[in-house]
Design a protein around this nucleic acid. Structure first.
Lengths: 219, 219
DNA sequence: ATGTAATCAAACCAATCGGTCAAACTAATT
DNA sequence: AATTAGTTTGACCGATTGGTTTGATTACAT
């Protein structure tokens, strides 16, 4: 595996140095992917560095050459996920009308959960455990949240939508969309869908959109 | 501790036998409570029988005298929680009108989450991990689910509410209410509420009720 | 070719894990 | 008082954990 010598863009440094850095970058990415898998399915305590190393195609001492400790790797990954999420918030850049913005938010959130179920569940696990590692970083969240709150409040003030509690409204969308990423097993059980079948995500999205549009009088 | 000799209802057996059984019952309950705490905060793999024993006021060999293995204890607890939940489903016994029934369901679900946050999170953790231990028991769920689906569908057919997908509608209520039990940390961060402050649960309940009543045209 | 710095792996460490066992202890029955 | 059944304990087991060490190996610049 990985014996292909893909050509590497020279990033200003010498080609040799570039190769070294590129290699290091790839290894760190492999470690991150492996760790997300392992942490998501076993939890922080249950995950073993041995298993993470193996998944990443490394030996244990080799892994510890690149990371300093299991806890630090765990926290790094959580922050990495949190960073990705800051771009999915309700924001006026997603369209002009409240309906467009709400539709876009729901779509982006469902899309992320579908594409990154492991990361999604890892985040949920950390939060339900009281966010012992993430609590320090959650403050970053608040900026995006407050922005969204202000936006929704302005809709209410302009009477573009029926009155809702902006914070809770946003949180409820978050809850429902997150649910589809985290509770796949329960959902399939509810829907009586087999292990390898998929449920109709387009229908789900339309139903979720309808729920929240009706809730603010847009449908 | 526990040196109080509480009088025990004679359950048909001799008083001595009754005391022995009562004692055993108390110990098993203590183990269950301790295990819910430990499993909820550390997960199945992370939890140690040592710690469970200590929380229950027992030694480790003493704990193993009452239970057979960690895994079995874990599964027993999950089934115990699942049993409690089967009574919280949407059901026509909760009132006459759709509005009354929906209000009652939301109220019961929020109430349970508030009173049993640990159990609630333990269930969520198991489900997000793919329900390796609970999947066999999830079938019991389906009966209650199908009952609720039939009820909601009848509302739609009678044109008592606007058309909704009965299964998804029910699941969305589940998702939002469950969210308040599981994501307390995130919610408090969103709301900028301190560690020991509480958020206004009455306001939350009213907002959740409004969300779903509007969604089916009842408000 | 040679020296140097980065990278790797076998063996190893103390600590903890779930679980067991035989011996001791307690309490009800005879 | 003697017997018995039920309960508790300290010591212990093999397995696994996160992490280290030491010495070999590699890749690069000169």
């Amino acid at each position: 595996m990985s014996s292909d010598k893909a050509d590497i863009r020279n990033d200003g440094k010498s080609t040799a140095r570039g190769k070294v850095l590129e290699r290091r970058r790839r290894i760190l990415a492999a470690i991150r992917d492996a760790a997300i898998d392992e942490f998501a399915s076993k939890g922080l305590v249950g995950a073993s560095t041995q298993a993470i190393a193996q998944r990443a195609g490394l030996t244990k001492p080799q892994l510890h050459y690149y990371i300093s400790s299991k806890e630090e790797l765990y926290e790094d990954i959580l922050v990495y996920i949190l960073d990705e999420w800051k771009e999915i918030f309700i924001s006026s850049s997603a369209g002009d009308t409240p309906e467009q913005i709400i539709r876009a938010y729901i779509h982006k959130k469902l899309e992320y959960g579908k594409r990154n179920p492991k990361a999604s569940r890892l985040f949920t696990a950390e939060i339900t455990n009281g966010a012992p590692f993430l609590s320090r970083h959650l403050a970053q969240y608040q900026a995006s949240t407050q922005e969204a709150v202000a936006l929704i409040r302005s809709w209410v003030d302009q009477e573009l939508i029926r009155p809702v509690d902006p914070l809770l409204f946003q949180m409820h969308i978050w809850a429902v969309t997150q649910h589809y990423a985290d509770f796949e097993v329960q959902i399939k059980s509810f829907m009586q869908i087999g292990e390898n079948e998929e449920f109709d995500m387009d229908h789900v999205e339309e139903e979720v959109v309808t729920l929240f549009l009706r809730a603010c009088g847009l449908k």
